[in-house]
């Protein structure tokens, strides 16, 4: 194609240049195949993965990320088990680009591979593909010795949003690694069952503050307000203000009236971010919060003043609605 337009290179020509003696020239041919946008380039790119030069193989793994579907996935999976770590890393990134559920097959097969980085990359690819038959390998991977694998397994299960994942995710909320506990608590957000809520509930007492923060946040999503309110109120005494903040916000979302006096106490907290959570008092809109909010009207922080003003108006509106 000539004239003012970008070329769509001839696959045969690129294939010919894949035979060049110079690795740099082969690499340029691989890049062309990546940008060809023609699925007929996939088998040629799969062949590149046998190139003696690791740089060329890495370019091949990267170029395969331009394509989707089972055939591309099989080639990417081959690159994922390349001995060169840079090739494997490029393949892992390309695998995460896949969107066609048919691409899942080779990664389900690799979920039990001997190398932890391969297992993790395979599960990472499976997450977005949301295939039901990824459930079993993901459940098994939750017992993987390597935390980087377990965290991806939680992701696969979380994206599936299926009831049968709940027992396994519950166990993961007690994982030795805080990052996995965090992920597992978030992954349970979809579940409305008492068992799931109880597990998140327990995470409010986790030794890691970021797990507690996620738990406090997640509990605000659920319908089980009455069940979780006492635990969230207890979390308003957490040693970390970040946790107290999420607890207040969740209690606001749950409109937990009995939490209002305790949230009002945070209006005098030294952290402005926490005082700003006076917004929760607006969501709850209990008349009893009014004096605390009135006292905070002249807070030195403009954002706090704004949320206080907003909260007071919510109480007014609620009162007016009740009278009407």
């Amino acid at each position: 194609m000539g004239g003012p337009f970008e070329a769509y290179s001839d696959l045969d020509e690129s294939a010919e240049r894949l035979k060049a003696a110079d690795a740099g020239e082969r690499r340029v041919a691989v890049m062309e195949l990546g940008h060809a946008g023609d699925p007929d380039a996939i088998p040629l790119l799969a062949g590149v993965l046998a190139d003696p030069d690791a740089g060329v193989r890495r370019e091949g793994a990267r170029a395969l990320g331009e394509y989707d579907g089972l055939e591309a996935a099989e080639a990417i999976a081959l690159a994922l088990i390349d001995a060169d770590p840079d090739v494997a890393a490029a393949a892992a990134d390309s695998a995460a680009e896949l969107r066609d559920p048919a691409a899942a097959d080779p990664f389900i097969a690799l979920a039990g591979h001997a190398s932890a980085s391969v297992r993790a990359a395979a599960l990472r690819a499976l997450k977005e593909l949301r295939r039901g038959d990824a459930l079993k390998p993901a459940l098994e991977a939750l017992r993987d010795p390597d935390p980087s694998v377990r965290v991806q397994a939680v992701g696969v299960l979380g994206f599936l949003k299926r009831e049968e994942t709940i027992p396994a995710l519950r166990i993961a909320t007690a994982d030795a690694d805080p990052q996995i506990r965090r992920a597992a608590v978030s992954a349970l957000a979809f579940a409305q069952s008492a068992a799931a809520t109880e597990a998140i509930h327990a995470a409010l007492r986790d030794e890691d503050w970021m797990v507690r923060e996620v738990a406090a946040d997640t509990l605000g999503n659920g319908a089980a307000g009455a069940l979780v309110a006492p635990a969230l109120i207890a979390a308003l005494d957490d040693a970390f203000w970040q946790v107290r903040l999420k607890a207040a916000r969740s209690l606001g979302r749950l409109r937990a009236v009995n939490a209002a006096p305790r949230i009002a106490a945070s209006l005098v907290a030294p952290q402005v971010n926490l005082r700003k959570e006076a917004a929760a008092l607006g969501e709850i809109a209990a008349a009893s919060s009014r004096p605390h909010l009135e006292a905070a009207r002249d807070d030195p922080d403009p954002d706090v003043r704004k949320t206080v003003g907003w909260a007071l108006r919510q109480i007014d509106r609620r009162a007016a609605a009740r009278e009407a």
């Binding site: 979380g158 994206f159 949003k161 917004a279």
Partner: peptide, 22 residues
Amino acid sequence: DRFGIRFAKTENGDFAVKKVHH
């Protein structure tokens, strides 16, 4: 999202929209 542009997602694969203010 279908094109492969990656937005922040929750652990359940939903878009992770952040609340900045009320």
